[in-house]
């Protein structure tokens, strides 16, 4: 279970998160919607452990442990996975090499032995096939020359291989066409499990047609402004965010 308690975060003296509270139960898919610049991506980065943010107050608990004390590596190994809005290109590192390094790092952290190459290859091929990731993409340098859709699929592929406790999808739908959106959503849905939760960050209702959330939170001005069920997303689609930002629609 992920609990964010009274989280205050600033960047370069500018307050971004202003006392945010949020709970995502085991097995729950929680959507966070909200206008641009309201701190949604900041929330995802702070949970994943990016260093540029100043956490002034609050806690982020994963199964009762405050992960704010950990660095990004430790959080990943504890089960936090961030699917990046803009996945990084890493020239010179073959995708397969990277995947193996990541899987082995997490296996070591869990006190498990490293995967044997044939076992690893099989695992990756199967996961790749499900997500429509071409074999030749796995040989190419990570994300280099990948289309927007390919990069997002690669993120979901990594999530499928790393099997996190909580998957944070930061605007995974941005830059995806309808077909890619469906493939990515199917990939996420296949990972839904009793002991795995998701935080799905998006601007639009569209993604939520494919990944059905249990709860929908509206974020505005650095905090959760309203929480409801899936119907809240539909409502927002009609009325916009004006009621939460205090601006006329």
């Amino acid at each position: 279970m992920l609990e964010v308690k009274n989280l205050h975060v600033s960047v370069g003296g500018r307050k971004i998160l202003d006392g945010l509270n949020l709970t995502v139960k085991d097995g729950e898919v929680a959507a966070i919607m909200g206008p641009n610049g309201t701190g949604k991506s900041t929330l995802s980065y702070v949970i994943a452990g990016r260093e540029d943010y100043e956490v002034e107050e609050g806690e982020v608990l994963l199964d009762g442990v405050n992960i704010l004390e950990m660095d990004a590596t430790e959080r990943a190994n504890a089960g936090v996975f961030l699917a990046f809005q803009y996945p990084l290109e890493i020239p010179g590192v073959a995708t397969m090499t990277f995947l193996k390094a990541a899987l082995n790092a997490q296996a070591r952290a869990k006190g498990q032995g490293e995967l044997q190459t044939p076992e690893f290859m099989k695992k990756v091929r199967e996961a790749a096939q499900k997500l429509g990731v071409a074999q030749d993409m796995l040989k190419r340098p990570l994300n280099v020359g990948f289309s927007g859709g390919e990069k997002k699929r690669m993120e979901i592929l990594q999530m499928a291989l790393l099997q996190p406790k909580i998957g944070i999808l930061d605007e995974t739908d941005s830059g995806l066409d309808i077909d890619a959106l469906r493939i990515v959503a199917d990939g996420v849905n296949a990972l839904r499990a009793q002991d795995r939760s998701f935080l799905v960050i998006t601007h639009y209702q569209r993604l939520l047609d494919y990944i059905k959330p249990d709860t929908v939170h509206v974020m505005a001005r650095g905090k959760i402004a309203r929480t409801g069920g899936p119907e809240l997303a539909l409502e927002l689609e009609k009325s916009g965010y004006a009621a939460f930002t205090g601006e006329a629609a």
Partner: peptide
């Protein structure tokens, strides 16, 4: 950060990037 977010230690991430 991207590599660390996948579980590589800082040292491993640096080594991978330097090797590349």
């Amino acid at each position: 950060f991207y590599l660390q977010a996948r579980g590589l230690s800082r040292g491993e991430a640096e080594s991978l990037l330097l090797e590349a």
